[in-house]
Simulated assay, not measured.
Amino acid sequence: MTLSYCTNVHPAEDLAGVLAQLDRYAVPVREHLGAELGLGLWLSAPVARELAGDAPRRAELRAALDARGLVVRTLNAFPYGGFHQEVVKHRVYHPDWTTSARLEYTLDCAAVLADLLPEGGAGSVSTLPLAWRHPWFPADHAAALARLEEAAAGLRALADRTGRVVRLAVEPEPGCVVDDVADAVRLLGGRVDPEFIGLCLDTCHLAVSFADPAGAVRSIDRAGLRVVKVQASAALELIDPTDAATVLGPFAEPRYLHQVRAFARGGVHRADDLPEAFTALPTDGPWRVHFHVPLHADPPAPLRSTTDVLRQAVAAVREVGHTPDVEVETYTWSVLPDGPTADSADELAAGIAAELRWAAKNLEVPA
């Protein structure tokens, strides 16, 4: 396992913007750490297409990364574009895996990554959990599985052509077709090529589902699937939600979906976003909220973060012998209550560096 941080926290939508943000944020993070820095790079679909079709430009990007002491081991191909628009919400799930656009974007990202990987290294590209759960019909599911089969064939051809193995990592997320690890095992186990398609285990999503981390990882292994990537992330937890609207109100921001699960009355109850949760969910058991919070800093009491789930999940992945890329993915800095403002690059770089130090120490994963 090696450690990276995901650049989807930054809003660049073109190649010039990507390079500018490496200088504005990634280089200062590396300087804070005093070591080579791993990146989980996010490229919008137009940038991925541009680079995939232009080998000299890929070589230029690789040289720019090398000159800055930056190493790319994984790409995040979940957001297609527009990830920092004023309102993202359900848009992040489009185009979904029924479409050729999603397949082409994913294979473009893989082609770019193959030229950016360190010598002798394999890489990963994470992707969305097929689609949001509705509307979703049997024909959609068949189409999505067919696209995944095409993706596996494309990744195999890429490996044959370049000698570089890039694997696709499907990321379960609450509210989606692949809602949790149990869905992933049921829907993908035995139906995808496990050499080229596995799972991205986002530990914020895992915590929100109230799954047992070790049990979830063992179920992935038993299904013949591989944890290709771990997104090291933490959710918000509120043990006593009787005053949830007051405590969690500052986190009910308009850009991203913040799915909520309540463990109460003998089961897990669901809401698709925080405003809905305040009126729909029971308050006689703990709530967990899909809001990625910085790993190194406790949220204000009575809130807690689910870093224990992260630790347990990584330990379980290590125990079953999988060696995924580990990517710190706190993309929510800009919408945190009292978080860094858009012009506080130094504060954001220091925060990302602190998260990476926390992860290296607590997860025993080298940077």
Score class of each variant (00 low, 15 high):
119 E>L: 02
120 G>C: 07
121 G>S: 14
122 A>W: 09
122 A>Q: 14
123 G>I: 03
123 G>S: 04
124 S>Y: 14
125 V>Q: 12
125 V>P: 05
127 T>K: 13
127 T>M: 14
127 T>I: 00
129 P>I: 03
130 L>Q: 00
130 L>H: 03
130 L>Y: 00
130 L>I: 14
131 A>M: 11
132 W>Y: 06
132 W>T: 02
133 R>P: 01
133 R>K: 15
134 H>P: 00
135 P>C: 09
135 P>H: 07
136 W>C: 13
137 F>T: 12
138 P>C: 15
138 P>H: 09
140 D>F: 07
140 D>H: 15
141 H>M: 10
142 A>S: 15
145 L>M: 13
145 L>P: 01
147 R>C: 11
147 R>Q: 15
149 E>C: 05
151 A>N: 01
151 A>G: 00
152 A>P: 11
153 A>S: 15
154 G>N: 02
154 G>R: 08
155 L>V: 05
155 L>Y: 09
156 R>C: 08
156 R>D: 13
157 A>P: 02
159 A>F: 10
159 A>I: 01
159 A>L: 01
161 R>C: 04
162 T>S: 12
162 T>K: 01
163 G>L: 06
164 R>A: 08
164 R>T: 04
165 V>G: 11
165 V>C: 11
165 V>M: 06
166 V>Y: 12
167 R>V: 06
169 A>H: 11
170 V>G: 13
172 P>S: 13
174 P>M: 11
174 P>H: 09
174 P>Q: 13
176 C>E: 08
177 V>I: 14
178 V>D: 00
179 D>L: 07
180 D>P: 04
181 V>K: 01
181 V>W: 03
182 A>H: 06
182 A>W: 01
185 V>M: 06
187 L>C: 13
187 L>I: 09
187 L>K: 06
187 L>R: 13
188 L>P: 01
189 G>D: 14
189 G>H: 09
191 R>N: 11
191 R>C: 11
191 R>H: 10
192 V>R: 04
192 V>K: 10
192 V>L: 08
